[in-house]
Design a protein around this nucleic acid. Structure first.
Lengths: 207, 207
DNA sequence: TTGTAATTGTTGCAAATGCAACAATAATAT
DNA sequence: ATATTATTGTTGCATTTGCAACAATTACAA
């Protein structure tokens, strides 16, 4: 049983605007959606498009911590202040709703009937996010690059075992936390072993 | 400003029992607290002690996905059904409160004044968990074993830059997703470089 | 359209890492 | 007390991986 169906999310978006203060905004490709801030605690909700949580360490290495898509939630509340810089960056045209955290935890003035259901939906959205994070940790727990690639592909392939590289191999390497050259090398090996087949940016998974 | 202080958590525990059905249970060392289940959706809350989220893949490799401590939340809702087996295992004597998920999302019968505040606290506990997961992902994004060790140690050292290995090096290696022998080797190198000092199971971090 | 930037594909090489194996020690159970 | 099991510490070796560098191709902007 799915807890977060379309109907509920639609209701959520409707209720949001009548209960708490929200701000909608459209971002174009590679724009900064949100960065760490200890003061302005915001929760974001993607209504259209995609985004990445990107980390840059002090040596300048960038890694993609997570990808976010429609109906995903994010927040600067999720990040501690570290030496690394963490940003949410749009990936193509992206529509976002921002919700003020204090608006959520304090009941709204008019004690509206929506507040409860909004918090419960946010709760379920957070659980969903948690699940995705665990998937990422599971991916990173794989011992070899080949295992990482297979796990990644199987998670994202369609019913015909096809995965299309819509971003770039560079982005995938950053997401897997592996060297791009090595990713290419392993893909070639996997093709030779018959684990996958490649036609340009389309990958078929055989196992 | 801390959102989850002692007072609030105390209040949370009190309210819980008067609003929703909970079950308290004590676990001894290395007992199974929770496993994946698509049917019985439970949320757990650790009131005393420690636990680990442990994953075993089909080859039998075990990895520690997360450690949990007092006031941490966990749930089988956080995990998808994968080939790998995921368990929550107690680490020493551990006291846990179990909350039924459906009890949370449905308002309690008597429409008690506590329900709201409980959901909000659970919401903040989830945010806290999310933060910890991001820290783990950040740890795993480190490129070398040395960087991973340093990040791990700095996160856990006390105000005197001391970290005491209370578990075992084996457990640390599993948590860092690295080979134990290599962990030992790197620790030795780091000691030679002057980055750390070791006296048995006590590590002093110099940088 | 043409120039510039980004991505893809490839390779040699050095360094990092995991694996296997073993002895020494510590912890635990009988 | 003694046996058994788990942990620690170490090493050689094969493999994997990242890094640097480059050409070829593709995408994008002026």
């Amino acid at each position: 049983m799915k807890t977060l169906d379309e109907t509920r999310l639609l209701q959520f978006k409707k209720n949001l605007s009548s209960c708490v203060n929200i701000k909608s905004k459209i971002f174009y490709n590679k724009e900064l959606i949100l960065s760490y801030s200890p003061i302005k605690k915001k929760i974001g909700f993607i209504t259209e498009g995609k985004a990445n949580i990107v980390k840059t360490d002090k040596e300048g290495n960038t890694t993609i911590m997570r990808d976010l898509k429609e109906n995903d939630i994010f927040s600067n509340l999720f990040f501690q202040n570290t030496e690394d810089e963490i940003y949410i960056i749009s990936n193509g045209e992206t529509k976002v709703i921002f919700i003020d955290y204090y608006n959520i935890i304090k009941n709204c003035n008019q004690n509206c009937p929506f507040h409860n259901s909004i918090v419960l939906t946010l709760f379920d959205l957070l659980i969903e996010d948690n699940k995705q994070q665990n998937e990422k940790i599971e991916l990173l727990s794989k011992r070899t690059v080949e295992e990482k690639i297979l796990f990644f592909l199987k998670q994202r392939m369609n019913e015909n075992n096809i995965f299309k590289v819509t971003t770039s191999y560079k982005a995938i390497a950053e997401y897997l936390f592996v060297d791009r050259a090595n990713l290419m090398r392993e893909l070639k090996k996997m093709e030779e072993k018959g684990l996958i087949e490649r036609y340009e940016k389309t990958i078929k998974i055989n196992s």
